[in-house]
């Protein structure tokens, strides 16, 4: 096998297809975290929110027989977790880093434990109904597009529209202005009569909700079951993408796609390159190594919300 053969077998339409397929969960969760961070709240518990979303979606789907009900369950559970996090981080003004970490630890333990209780065995759920995939006959007539879009989850449409929608909300609506203001200088917002606490609550709940949907995609669309710890670091990748993308819609979108591409690439490389030439572990580690390198380069740039991570104190000078 020549080098050229390997290149040819790697860069195919299938690579584009899997890039998009992989991007959906981190894109939805990443966009959610971007909303939260823009309002000045750092929720590093995305991983946990996604995990509970994936869990609730599978359970809801299994017992109701409808994946859509499963999706609703994921939204509901994510909102409850978002509310707990908001109360701790915004109202009680506890450390947001600790609260986020606690959410992730709680979700890891709780989802596994509840799995054990409900099904009397750990590991994973039985097969559950899944969300429909896109299957439009006319797309098959278009050569490349059909092979990329058909057979993707319906959530793909949502995931790809989300950055555009959020761009419009951020920069073309008053609510978006208030959201950005809450993350830059909440006192400036308070003095014009808008309560930054309300804005931060709404933003954190929106973020959690999208985190839950991002997780649900994994259990009721990309696969058809929940298995323990199935989010496997995607929440942290989403978190990294938000920082890498400067907490702005276009940047975060690009960053999510980049991370998804790297993941798709490493999976393709694993099968394309024989194990005795380069061990597969090298490729598996690739996205994580790149994440560290890129974040290290990017850190100096700035451009994120000025007041991120700080609780809003009303009567302080």
């Amino acid at each position: 096998m020549t080098f050229l053969d390997i290149i040819k077998s790697v860069f195919t339409i299938a690579l584009v297809y899997s890039t998009i397929r992989i991007s959906i969960s981190i894109l939805i969760a990443g966009m959610g975290e971007m909303i939260t961070e823009r309002s000045g709240v750092l929720n590093i518990g995305v991983e946990g929110v996604m995990l509970m979303g994936a869990w609730a979606a599978a359970i809801g789907s299994y017992f109701s027989g409808s994946a859509w009900i499963g999706l609703l369950c994921a939204v509901g559970v994510a909102l409850v977790i978002g509310l707990i996090f908001s109360y701790i981080a915004i109202t009680l003004k506890a450390s947001q880093a600790i609260a986020g970490l606690a959410i992730t630890l709680l979700a890891t333990g709780l989802s596994g434990y509840l799995l054990q209780i409900i099904f009397e065995h750990g590991g994973n759920t039985p097969r559950v109904p899944t969300l429909p995939n896109i299957n439009l006959a006319f797309l098959n007539k278009i050569p490349v597009l059909g092979r990329i879009i058909n057979d993707q989850s319906v959530l793909m449409i949502f995931a790809l529209l989300l950055p555009i929608l959020l761009y419009i909300i951020f920069y073309r609506t008053p609510w978006g202005t208030w959201l950005r203001a809450a993350g830059e200088n909440p006192k400036a917002l308070a003095v014009v009569g808008i309560n930054p606490v309300t804005v931060r609550y709404i933003a954190t709940l929106c973020g959690a909700m999208l985190g839950g949907i991002g997780g649900a995609y994994l259990s009721i669309s990309q696969t058809s079951m929940f298995s323990e710890n199935m989010v496997a670091g995607r929440g942290f990748i989403a978190l990294a993408a938000v920082i890498f993308g400067n907490v702005k819609p276009r940047g975060v979108f690009a960053a999510c796609m980049f991370f998804a591409f790297m993941d798709a690439l490493q999976m393709t490389l694993q099968t394309a390159v024989p194990d005795n030439i380069i061990p597969r572990e090298v490729f598996q580690a690739l996205p994580y190594i790149l994440t560290v390198v890129i974040l290290a380069i990017n850190m100096a740039k700035g451009g994120g919300p000025a007041d991120i991570g700080n609780p809003y104190e009303k009567e302080s000078r």
Binding site: R172, T173, P174, T177, W178, R180, A181, E184, N185, K187, A188, L189, A190, V191, V192, G193, I194, A306, R317
Partner: peptide
């Protein structure tokens, strides 16, 4: 005394903050 302004926004955005003129009901 300590300005309540948002450095990352323009003068006009700061002036209008909270009472932005709207196009329709939703848009700035």
């Amino acid at each position: 005394q300590h300005f309540k302004l948002i450095p990352a926004m323009t003068v006009a955005e700061n002036v209008m903050l909270g009472l932005e003129p709207r196009k329709g009901k939703i848009f700035l």
